[in-house]
């Protein structure tokens, strides 16, 4: 189990780096799906099977298919790929990478002071749903309203005049 965690973590980091380095959008999207599936494996190892299943269905399934539909609608061809290659100059990477490295250094510095051992205990669907439809039922309702608002906004924004 513990080896599975580290293997999935390495795959997730490599696939995520590959996403931001790609020039072809569809390749980037496929790497992102790989990264999300690796994170789903990590969720499973950490004892959250419900979250793992939702990560695979909703993130790697629904949201990525939405991306794919839009990329197909935009119909970006070879021209965009060449343009993309000209945008990705090595100089443009320096400052963002430096800033992110400083942020990462600070986060790692803070987090390495925590030295708790984590013993993955299975928290199944029943515990989660008992809380979800018990004390957190208002949050579920608000989430449904948020999704409805997203649907209406997406319909309105993508509409042709």
């Amino acid at each position: 189990m513990i080896a599975l965690f580290y293997i999935a973590a390495i795959i997730a980091v490599i696939a995520t780096v590959a996403v931001i380095l790609q020039t072809n959008i569809v390749h980037g999207l496929l790497y992102l799906i790989l990264s999300l599936l690796a994170v789903a494996v990590i969720f499973y190892v950490l004892g959250a099977p419900f979250a793992a299943v939702l990560e695979a269905i909703v993130y790697a399934g629904a949201i990525m298919v939405l991306f794919l539909f839009v990329i197909m609608m935009l119909n970006l061809g070879q021209h965009t790929r060449d343009q993309e290659r000209s945008w990705l100059t090595p100089r443009g990477w320096i400052v963002p990478s430096l800033l992110a490295a400083v942020l990462l250094g600070q986060l790692v510095n803070v987090m390495s002071q925590i030295d708790h051992e984590l013993i993955p205990a299975q928290i199944g669907v029943m515990e989660v749903s008992a809380l979800l439809f018990g004390p957190y039922v208002l949050a579920v309702e608000l989430a449904s309203i948020l999704l409805l608002a997203g649907l209406v906004a997406a319909y309105h924004l993508a509409k042709t005049k």
């Binding site: 965690f5 950490l46 925590i114 708790h116 051992e117 984590l118 993955p120």
Partner: peptide, 9 residues
């Protein structure tokens, strides 16, 4: 067990 900081990092 997995160290919790590895997950957070």
């Amino acid at each position: 067990s997995i160290p919790v900081e590895h997950g957070l990092i």
